[in-house]
């Protein structure tokens, strides 16, 4: 009988701590599967963020470094400059990457740092209990925008993929969603492309995942997937924003 799916070697097998319906675990698995398929597990070093995925170093069966909040691209820069022949990726949430770590992500991208960044955008601060994120949608209620995000007070949800795609140093920028199997397959292809760009020594790449947070959105898992697929995609359209030949 043909084996169609196996547990990826690039995951440790430790049970995820993520909430039911959260897509972090799924995204971890996509990344791990691609690492296995590319046979780069022994040469890959990951950088974990501060946020819900802070324990990512317990889940990926790889050499890992845990960075301080927002600084993962700087930490990854340090690793990649020491080991240019290894594959280095960061895994960052929206508070980490799009708020406290904007300087680091923009400059890493602009330098064309040869790393892969996986950006998990679920429009909310999950770990701290549902506060407003830089990517929280206009009108979306969070514990720090109890009446809904107001543009007047908090500005607009930050479009990271669009922003980084205009920088000369970025070579591959894609926004993907994981709300249904078809999109999951697209997302996996984007992860693979990102790693391939790095293996080819081309430059900075980022894959933005529209992700769910049923707990802090106050939704059931299925409802959350619908929200990600139907509502988030309106403001954050999936697609390939940059692909340098």
């Amino acid at each position: 009988m043909k084996l169609t799916a196996a547990y990826p070697e690039s995951l440790t097998g430790k049970e995820f701590h993520y909430c039911p319906g959260c897509t972090h675990g799924l995204i971890h698995r996509l990344i791990a599967e691609v690492i296995d398929e590319l046979e780069i597990r022994e040469k890959t070093i990951g950088v974990a963020p501060v946020g819900c995925a802070v324990l990512a170093y317990e889940y990926f069966n790889l050499d890992m470094q845990e960075a301080s909040h927002g600084r993962a691209p700087a930490v990854a820069t340090g690793i990649k400059r020491v080991h240019p022949d290894r594959v280095v990726f960061t895994y960052q949430g929206d508070g980490d990457l799009a708020s406290i770590g904007t300087a680091e992500i923009i400059h890493a991208a602009n330098r064309g740092e040869k790393i892969s960044v996986f950006f998990i955008n679920n429009a909310v601060y999950g770990m701290t209990g549902g506060q407003m994120a830089p990517t929280t949608l206009t009108g979306q209620r969070t514990t720090t925008s109890p009446l809904g995000r107001s543009v007047e007070s908090s500005g607009y949800p930050l479009k990271i993929s669009e922003l980084l795609s205009i920088l000369e140093g970025s070579v591959f920028i894609a926004r993907v969603s994981v709300h249904n199997p078809a999109h999951i397959m697209k997302a996996k292809r984007a992860v693979k492309t990102s790693f391939q760009y790095q293996l080819d020594g081309k430059g900075f790449s980022l894959v933005e995942f529209l992700s769910t947070c049923p707990t802090n959105w106050g939704m059931k898992p299925v409802e959350a997937l619908r929200f990600a697929g139907e509502e988030m995609t309106k403001y954050f359209p999936p697609g390939t924003y940059k692909e340098v030949e």
Binding site: A67, R71, A74, V75, T77, I79, R81, V82, A103, E104
Partner: peptide, 24 residues
């Protein structure tokens, strides 16, 4: 070797963290 002028002192010290953790 590598000299890199970081975007801030905050980034510089975190690059040091990464490089030191990578064994350099």
């Amino acid at each position: 070797g590598v000299f890199l002028q970081a975007e801030s002192e905050v980034s510089a010290i975190n690059m040091v963290y990464g490089a030191a953790g990578a064994g350099a």
